[in-house]
Design a protein around this nucleic acid. Structure first.
Length: 779
DNA sequence: GCGTGGGGGATACCG
DNA sequence: ACCGGTATCCCCCACGCG
């Protein structure tokens, strides 16, 4: 019979001699289904050194223990057609070993595809898109014992895309764990999980609490999951923390944690994500990591930024105080956990559409794609598309990462400017790559002659790329851009509040993310398709095109005030449209009038400016006020100064207002009339070992002595207090600082003044003018 | 012994 | 665990001076 199902998760299983692939999904009737394929073997490809060795190679491979079958197949490698041997392997866990063994044979040039996971081989070779409906011929079979599904099938036929477009209704469960440590970070050996608040798929809020220990709590949590049988599990920070801790606690308690649809432990899988069989376990922190505007990635900040819930709603509890709340203020802690699980659910709803679209585009299962870094998302998209075109997948190898020259950044003309237009190339790097057919499979090494079809030569660096046939990057980038254009076209005909609009919006974002990251991918030394000349040539063309438009603008009588990589800033006047047209015609690259600043200010520094658009929107770029490693006292002051300078018509008046504001603000700071939080400086710990001594490292040492586990990736918050000696000797963890101890002079002289003066000196204000109004005037 | 200036480490930004 | 280009802070040490 035909079964249509929406593919949610995939795993493999080996109950007997033959491995099985299992597809977990939801059918068109909303039933949870499991489809088992017992007839797919993992495989890899062996390229002989010479075509004459093909049959000898087949013979050798077929005699190796563990090989099920060999056949000759035609493939391509970096654009070159070749014959190779497809080796089917009996046991997925033997792939690596067999490939190594065969690689060592005298007549073998190389092995390919052995480092692509069994389940991913299945998805790719069968052309299965995750998070979509698929149709397949299957026959009903008995449900595996304990499996939380309605129906099970054995796959007997081929797949084809389903006509069903509408996604099924997913049952989502959100959870939030409270894990206090009595002394510093909680240790699973001694500290139990004390609370788990859950929102079930039926929107019931449950707060589970530890009693004597957390044994019952963990069991209850599993019961909630099993009885509500969700498809998707939302959490925040769960891949690196909560699940790991829960598993540890379960082991210590000697109980099972049967949260998967087969009743298994959750386990850590690809990209450090935690996999829950048959469901999609999504850690929403993975999505929040990609939002640069959120500086401190707490659940509360993320929910606030995305409009899910204000950071002020519900109680605020520092991690450092959790144990105290659990011991003495449990009612508040309950409230806290409940608000947080609501935040988790809100974030989940915010990201689910995007996650689903990303999964469809990239081809990785939902839970994998969420946790995968940008480079891997690009890479899986490439792998899928390459295999579709008969290309072999290069193995990952350690490459020497020689550096190369990137984009051009112009020195800005410091000061206040009016009516400034920004012209920029639309998707410059992807377009450069398509236009010049830059790709690993079109690259012509220096020792090869020019091909008959001709080649494109990168300006300055001299790398050559075949004009024909189209390379992998040209093909996939044009496909991404074509698909995105189509989606954007469809969006125009839809109501903004329709659910389909949200889906398409998410889709176009997913397509854009992959296209924009492709250039960066080509320069990543760890990439399977890494080839330095590809990245180097792309950047070289970028510099060439930017120089071209600078020249054209200047020849048309425009002064270029600033420019960075793919943009130039010029005075907006008659003739801009004409300039745009001529650029487009000459370079065959899309260039756009991106925006017009009513007023814009540039400091002496590159990559830092602020401007106001006609509609009053203020753009803040690169300045201290957008940096998460500056304290809020300085960021807020600079932001307000920028606002005054940009929106006050008369500069003379702006000067007065700015001075008045700073005098008042500094006075407030001196009197501690600003939130104490605003003095905290947050910095990330980026590595294990350091050479330098700095405030944030000293504070990290303090925290570690107190029992807190600080790992690379964590942020530490510190405050500078009064006293003598180096700055790092006067820095303390933010929650340890008393208001009286704060070194206010440090904040004023070293943070607030420098930040605001960088703006104010542009309108002729001297630092000495700011100091009045307080003590001096009084004296 | 003390102030200074520049190099380098560290971080987070821009496109 | 995506690229190169850039600003900025702070620490540290060599250096010159007396």
């Amino acid at each position: 019979m035909k079964v249509s199902f929406w593919l949610l998760d995939i795993d493999s299983h080996k109950p007997g001699p033959r491995p099985q692939v299992r597809l977990w999904g939801i059918d068109e009737g909303g039933r949870r289904v499991l489809l088992i394929d017992k007839n797919f073997l993992p495989r890899f490809y062996v390229v002989p050194k010479n075509n004459n060795f093909l049959s000898a190679l087949m013979d050798k491979c077929s005699r190796i223990e563990g090989v099920a079958e060999v056949k000759p197949v035609r493939r391509r490698f970096l654009g070159r057609e070749l014959m190779c041997v497809e080796v089917l392997v009996k046991d997925p866990s033997n792939m690596d070993r067999l490939a190594k063994k065969i690689s060592n044979l005298e007549i073998v040039m190389g092995c390919y595809g052995y480092d692509v996971r069994y389940t991913m081989q299945y998805l790719i070779l069968k052309n299965l898109p995750p998070c979509k409906f698929i149709e397949v011929e299957a026959s009903p079979t008995s449900r595996p014992e304990g499996a939380q599904i309605d129906l099970a099938y054995e796959i007997v036929g081929e797949f084809k895309p389903s006509v069903i477009e509408e996604p099924p209704e997913l049952r989502t469960l959100s959870f939030y764990c409270v894990i206090p440590g009595e002394k510093g970070s909680p240790d699973p050996k001694s500290s139990p999980v004390v609370m788990i608040s859950v929102i079930t798929p039926d929107d019931e809020i449950i707060c589970l609490e530890a009693g004597d220990g957390d044994s019952d709590l963990l069991k209850d949590f599993c019961d909630v999951i099993r009885s509500s049988n969700p498809d998707v599990i939302f959490g925040y920070g769960t891949n690196k923390r909560d699940w790991i801790y829960l598993v540890e606690r379960a082991k210590i308690n000697g109980i099972k944690l049967p949260v998967g649809r087969t009743g298994l432990f959750p386990h850590t899988s690809a990209y450090g994500h935690v996999s829950v069989t048959g469901r999609a376990n999504l850690d929403l922190l993975d999505f929040v990591e990609d939002i640069q505007e959120i500086k401190l990635k707490t659940l509360q900040n993320a929910a606030d930024y995305l409009g899910v819930m204000s950071e002020n709603e519900g109680p605020e509890i520092l991690e450092y105080d959790l144990y105290d709340y659990w011991s003495r203020k449990r009612e508040i802690l309950r409230d806290y956990a409940q608000h947080n699980v609501m935040r988790v659910k809100g974030l989940g709803e915010e990201f689910l559409d995007f996650g689903i679209q990303l999964s469809q585009v990239v081809g990785l299962p939902l839970d994998h794609v969420a946790a995968a870094a940008v480079g891997f998302r690009v890479e899986w998209f490439l792998i899928k598309e390459a295999v579709r075109r008969g290309e072999l997948v290069p193995p990952r190898k350690e490459a020497f990462a020689g550096s190369y020259v990137g984009g051009i950044v112009l020195k800005p003309e410091p000061g206040v400017h009016e009516d400034i237009a920004v012209l920029d190339f639309a998707s410059m790097y992807p377009n450069i790559m398509m236009l010049n057919n830059i790709s690993p499979d079109t690259y012509i090494p220096p020792d090869e002659p020019d091909p008959p079809q001709g080649c494109y030569v990168a300006p300055g660096v001299g790398h050559r790329f075949r004009k024909e046939p189209p390379g992998l990057y040209r093909e996939i980038l044009s496909e991404l851009i074509r698909a995105r254009r189509e989606v954007k076209e469809k969006l125009k005909s839809l109501q903004e509040d329709s659910p389909y609009y949200r889906v398409l919006q998410a889709r176009q974002r997913a397509l854009k993310v992959i296209a924009n990251a492709t250039y960066g991918y080509t320069g990543w030394a760890g990439a399977r398709w890494y080839l330095k000349p590809v990245a180097e040539a792309t950047a070289a063309w970028g510099r060439h095109y930017l120089r071209s438009i600078i020249t054209m603008a200047e020849e048309a009588g425009f002064r270029v005030i600033y420019g960075d990589t793919d943009s130039i800033f010029i005075r907006y006047r008659e003739g801009v449209d004409d300039l745009l047209n001529r650029i487009e015609k000459k370079l065959s690259l899309d260039i756009k009038l991106e925006k017009i600043y009513q007023r814009i200010i540039f400091t002496e520094a590159k990559k830092k400016y602020a401007g106001v658009l006609e509609d009053g929107t203020i753009d803040l770029v690169g300045l201290e006020c957008v940096r998460g490693d500056w304290p809020d006292v300085a960021r807020k002051a600079q932001r307000e100064i920028v606002r005054i300078v940009l929106t006050t018509r008369e500069i003379r008046e702006a000067r007065q207002r700015a001075k008045a504001f700073i005098r008042k603000y500094v006075e407030d700071v001196r009197n501690l009339k600003v939130p104490l939080k605003d003095f905290t400086i947050w910095k990330e710990i980026t590595k294990k070992e350091y050479k330098a001594r700095t405030p944030h490292l000293k504070v990290t040492e303090d925290l570690r002595r107190m029992g807190w586990k600080i790992k690379p990736g964590d942020k530490v918050g510190y405050v500078v207090v009064k006293g003598s000696g180096k700055l790092y000797e006067r820095s303390v963890p933010f929650f340890k600082a008393c208001p009286e101890d704060i070194d206010i002079d440090y904040y004023i002289d070293k943070m607030i003044f420098p930040a605001v003066m960088r703006i104010l000196k542009l309108i002729g204000v001297e630092e000495s003018e700011l100091k009045g109004g307080g003590l001096e005037e009084f004296l």
